[in-house]
Design a protein around this nucleic acid. Sequence first.
DNA 1: TTATTTTAAGACAAAAGACTCTGTAATTAG
DNA 2: CTAATTACAGAGTCTTTTGTCTTAAAATAA
Lengths: 153, 153
Amino acid sequence: MLLSKSCVYGLRAALFLATRKDGEYTPIKGMSEKLEISFHFLTKILQQLTAEGILKSYKGPNGGVKLTKPGHEVTLMDIVLAIDGPKLLTECALGLPGCGLKNPCPLHDKWAETRDSIRDMLENTSLTDLVRKGIEENLRLTDDGDFEDLLRI
Amino acid sequence: MLLSKSCVYGLRAALFLATRKDGEYTPIKGMSEKLEISFHFLTKILQQLTAEGILKSYKGPNGGVKLTKPGHEVTLMDIVLAIDGPKLLTECALGLPGCGLKNPCPLHDKWAETRDSIRDMLENTSLTDLVRKGIEENLRLTDDGDFEDLLRI
DNA sequence: TTATTTTAAGACAAAAGACTCTGTAATTAG
DNA sequence: CTAATTACAGAGTCTTTTGTCTTAAAATAA
Ligand code: SF4
Ligand code: SF4
């Protein structure tokens, strides 16, 4: 897999948070139930995002987490970097030793192209982009629910 | 990582075999030393390739493994499919549940493009292509050796 | 035949990734 | 103040991947 499972879960959660009203803290428990992700595991992942400054958290009743910035200012790349780190952009698909720009194999150019295409996609897509499209086309974040569901909570 | 480590090792070994003379069996032991891959681990990987018909093997003195077909008829995709299976081509990068062609997220088109580009690259590159380029531009298959080395053995 | 060289097969071990559990600290409501 | 609710922290478990080891089977050579 291109992205780790943690990373995909983090993306799902971030999308979920982008559907909530600004300023409101959303408890992780409810999120984990809606998204069908283990509560403790999701907690751990969101702690990373909090540590990276992508989320703000608040303890106690009415506490939870929320996006630090509005959804249209958060790109998928922000989440991926926070959870999986930069290896996606730096590592080569084949990973033949001793090669690279100075000494490329025949795949190098094509792979650089592919990698750039992935990077562009992640950098140029914001959470809000996905939420909007999700609502328009009824994309699900879970197996059974839909976006309408999420907005109604 | 896009490809598993086993798969990368398999590709390295297949490239190595594509440098050898047709018809000669190459012992895995020597290969593992040249490529700096654990002998037993490499054996296991090459057994898969043998089971898939990509390699032929022969036991006993002067035995070893060799490519079933000439190097220019073996694509990188052949190796990848044999070791990592088709999930690279079927799985989505994000893996959001419940979506797909019928119900695409905004990434779907771009991702399909990316995936096609990876597939084309793997399908249209033969072992011989890489070996030729490797010789021309002195690509290494190991940290210290070079292609000249391999050809001299 | 006997010793040697080689792959085949499968059990075993270590490391990494994915997930769980238990307890603690902060915050609020009553 | 007390009890409830929430995130935080870290240890612990399960699974998959990666890698090691041992033994068997096939082939050859002497
Ligand atoms: S030359 Fe480039 S594409 Fe080819 S193996 Fe090296 S880093 Fe990867
Ligand atoms: S719509 Fe396509 S690209 Fe988007 S998450 Fe689903 S399968 Fe992946």
